[in-house]
């Protein structure tokens, strides 16, 4: 008879898990962003590669340094900062001076994440916090766009990329171009929907190809690592609003497909608004949250001073997300809505 004389481990039930883990989710978000990032490099050339690398490197460095200074174990291994860094880089115009990119990376991780307590405590999407500060601080740099598919894009980079810190970058007009949203807003040129779907337009590094963004989103949604109700709610709201407005006045307002496919709406709706930490938790909550982002985006784009409004729409909706959760708490089983 074999006697059982072992030290038994005491753990609390359940003793099995679904296998989900934070680092796994974050890694898959990174994988889902890879096609979009590669397309950005393909469309904008070396410039985009430099911008993305600088964004990623600055975010990783900031995370490492902030953990070190606050005497906390390093949180690089949870991969969340890789998501932030990549997303932040994808929202930047390629050709943004590297020092600006890196400054924004520090702001994204420092101000957007660690100031609030790190992973899980950030009320706003950290990448968008970084971008919003950059937008306010460097309005020219952040709205100077390089044309996609330039001929020399793999052999040279624009001089603006390596501007000295705090010196004004010089832009060559020949290389720059207007985004579809700006072209519509200021020149009333409507880009072709097919170009917008495929990504043959100008814009931020990662916002141009709707089809690749949706592909990444579908992958995450299939793995239940992204709440598909959020982008769906945003898309439906934007489409319905724009369709109605365009119907009322085709001269003044663009078409629904244009609104959906242009600018940062796709990237924002699929990868930014779905930031788990900063979005509501309940099904009804995320629908309201998505609708709010849709309404704000349309409002800012059509009636605001800026051509693009997705970033501010998401940040504003992030701010009210906890309140949405409080308002639409699901009815607990057997209570018919009564308090405990």
């Amino acid at each position: 008879m074999v006697s059982v004389a072992k030290t038994l481990q005491l753990r609390t039930s359940p003793h099995v898990t679904s296998g989900a883990s934070v680092d796994l989710i974050m890694r898959h978000v990174v994988w889902a962003l890879v096609p979009t990032a590669l397309f950005g490099v393909y469309a904008f050339g070396l410039t985009a590669a430099v911008t993305l690398s600088a964004a990623l490197a600055s975010c990783l460095l900031a995370e490492w340094l902030l953990c070190k200074w606050s005497e906390q174990p390093s949180t690089l291994s949870d991969w969340s900062v890789a998501v932030t860094g990549l997303l932040y880089g994808l929202t930047l115009p390629p050709g943004l001076p590297v020092w600006m990119t890196m400054l924004g990376g520090f702001i994204a991780v420092g101000l957007g994440k660690h100031l609030f307590g790190g992973l899980g405590y950030n009320p706003f999407n950290p990448a968008l916090v970084g971008r919003a500060v950059m937008q306010a601080a460097f309005p020219v740099g952040m709205t100077t766009w390089h044309a996609a598919f330039g001929s020399g894009r793999f052999s040279s980079v624009p001089s603006s990329l390596f501007t000295f810190p705090f010196a004004a970058p010089e832009y060559t007009d020949a290389l720059t171009s207007a985004t579809p949203l700006a072209a519509w807003k200021f020149e009333h040129n409507l880009a072709a929907a097919s170009d917008l779907v495929m990504g043959f337009t100008t814009g931020s590094t990662g916002e141009t190809s709707a089809v690749l963004i949706l592909l990444g989103g579908a992958y995450l949604a299939a793995r239940k690592m992204m709440n598909w109700r959020i982008p769906l709610s945003i898309f439906v709201t934007v489409a319905v609003l724009t369709f109605a407005l365009h119907l009322a006045s085709p001269e003044a307002y663009p078409t629904a497909p244009f609104m959906l496919l242009s600018g940062g709406l796709m990237l924002g709706a699929v990868f930014m608004a779905t930031d788990m930490v900063a979005s509501p938790m309940t099904t009804l909550g995320v629908v309201i949250y998505g609708a709010l982002i849709g309404v704000l985006t349309v409002t800012i784009r059509l009636w605001g001073g800026m051509p693009e409004g997705v970033m501010y729409a998401i940040l504003l909706a992030n701010a009210v997300a906890p309140h949405i959760d409080r308002l639409v708490r699901p009815t607990v089983y057997g209570t018919s809505g009564r308090k405990a």
């Binding site: 883990s21 934070v22 992973l119 899980g120 938790m281």
Partner: peptide
């Protein structure tokens, strides 16, 4: 036991709870 991370509000638990707690 597996490493504990901070809650990232993924809402998996909200969608799992059979009595609709948070």
């Amino acid at each position: 036991p597996p490493k504990e991370y901070p809650c990232i509000r993924c809402a998996y638990c909200v969608d799992a709870c059979p009595i609709f707690l948070n």
